[in-house]
Write a protein that binds this DNA or RNA. Sequence first.
DNA 1: ACAAAATATCTTGTATACAAGTATACAATC
DNA 2: GATTGTATACTTGTATACAAGATATTTTGT
Lengths: 233, 233
Amino acid sequence: MSTVVRPSLIEIAPQSMRPTALPDHVYAVLKQRILSCAVQPNERLIEKKLCEELRISRTPLREALNRLSHEELVSFQPHAGYRVAGITLAGFRNLIELRSIVEPQAAALAAERATPGDIAALRAQATLPYDPSEDRSFVQYCQANSRFHLLVVRCARNPMLENIVMSALDMYQRPTYLRIGRQMDPGNPSSKHHAIVDAIEQHDAEAARKVMYRHIRGGGERIMTALRDARIA
Amino acid sequence: MSTVVRPSLIEIAPQSMRPTALPDHVYAVLKQRILSCAVQPNERLIEKKLCEELRISRTPLREALNRLSHEELVSFQPHAGYRVAGITLAGFRNLIELRSIVEPQAAALAAERATPGDIAALRAQATLPYDPSEDRSFVQYCQANSRFHLLVVRCARNPMLENIVMSALDMYQRPTYLRIGRQMDPGNPSSKHHAIVDAIEQHDAEAARKVMYRHIRGGGERIMTALRDARIA
DNA sequence: ACAAAATATCTTGTATACAAGTATACAATC
DNA sequence: GATTGTATACTTGTATACAAGATATTTTGT
C-alpha cells in the first residue's frame, strides 16, 4: 500500500486513543463514529465502501470490524454483513446490572489500594465539564465521565476488571449521549463523584461501594426512563 | 479452497462447541489445544505451520488467533508473532478476584430468577465425575465444573455476565488442570455445588452469594498455593 | 393482479502473492 | 573473549483476485 497520508484517519480521534498500526487506526475511527452516533444504530456497514473511504484494503478493516463485533458495538451475521449495533432497552438494563455489580466492588478495592497519587488524579477528574450552551460539550462530557469511572477501577489494580469496565463504559456512551441530546439535564454527577473520591481517600471500602452503587443505579434509571419515553429503544 | 475432509479439525472438539464456519472451527481447535495444555504455555504459534497442519489459509487462521488474543489465551506482539499465553501468579490472582466479584452476585440473581427447569438442570450438573484412576477424566472434570458454574450464571438471565464468566472459566481451566495433574486431590466441589443449588432453589439470594463466594475463594486459594509450590507460575 | 421462481447483482469468505518489519546468526572490531 | 554491526532468513502486514452465498429484481405462469 502506498504511503500517502490518509486524511480520513486523522479525523476526530480523541487524544486518549493513540493507535499505531493500521487495524488500530481503523478500529479507533469506526468506534469513534459509532459512539458519537455519527453512524446511526442499525446502519449497515459495507466493507467495500469503508475501504474506499478510509483508503485501506479489506484485511485490516475486517480485523477492526471483528474486534468491534466482539465488543458488541457492531452486530454481524454470516454472509449478511455488519451493522452498527442497535440500542435496546433490555440490553441497556443488562448493562446497568453489569456495571452495578462490577464497579461498586472495584470502588471498594480502590479504597483499599489507591495511592495518594491515584487520589489526586481522581480528584482532578471528578468534576465534569458541562456547558449546555455548547453542543460539542455533550460528547466531551460523556468521555470525561467515562474517564473518571475508568480511573476508579484502575485503582483496583486489576487489568481484567479494567477491561470489563472499559467495554461497559463504551456501550454506555450512546444511550447517555442520546438522552442528553434530548433532555437537557444531565443530573450533574460531579457531587457523586467527589463523594466516591472522599470514600476512597478515607479508605472506607464499604462507603465507596455503596455510593458507587447508588450512583450507577440512579443514573441508569434516569437514562432508561428517558429512553423509554423517547421510544429510542 | 477444496472440499476435502480436514481430519485435524475433527479432533477432540467437545460437543458443547458447535462451530459452523471455518474461523470458528479453527478457533475451537486452537482453544481446545491451549486449554488442555496440548500446546505448552509460552509456546510460539507460527501461522504458516498451523495453516499447513490444519489445511487452511492464513485469513481464517488469523481471525481465530485475533479472537484468542482478545480473550488473552494467546499473547501477541506486532511483527513478532503469537504465543500461547503464559500462566502467572498475578494473572491468576486477578482472575480469582474477578470471579469472586461476578459469580456470587450472579448466583444471587439466579436465586431470584431461576425457574424450576433451571434448578433441575443445575442439580443434574452439580455432581462432578472424577475418577483419579483415569487420566482422561481430568479434562472432563474441569469442563464439567465450568459447565456448572456457567449454568448458574445463565440463570441470572444476563448475556453480558454470561460472556464474562465464560471467558473467566476458560482462563481458569489451565491452572486447575495443571494443579490436579500434580496433586491428586481435587477437593471435591460437588457438595459445595449442591449447597449453591439448595440456596437458589430456596430463592435465598444472600445464601447463594455467600456460598458461591466461599467456594470460589477456597478453590482459588488451593490452586494458587499449589501453583506456587510447584513453581509453575 | 398476484405469487413464485429464476436470475442478476451485490456482499462476504477464502486463498495467495507481495511488502515490510524482526530476529538470529555470523563476522568484524574493540 | 565480548560486543556491536550487518546481512540473511523468517514471520507477520496488507492488498487483491476469485469463490460462494444472500438479497433484490424481474420475469413468467396462474
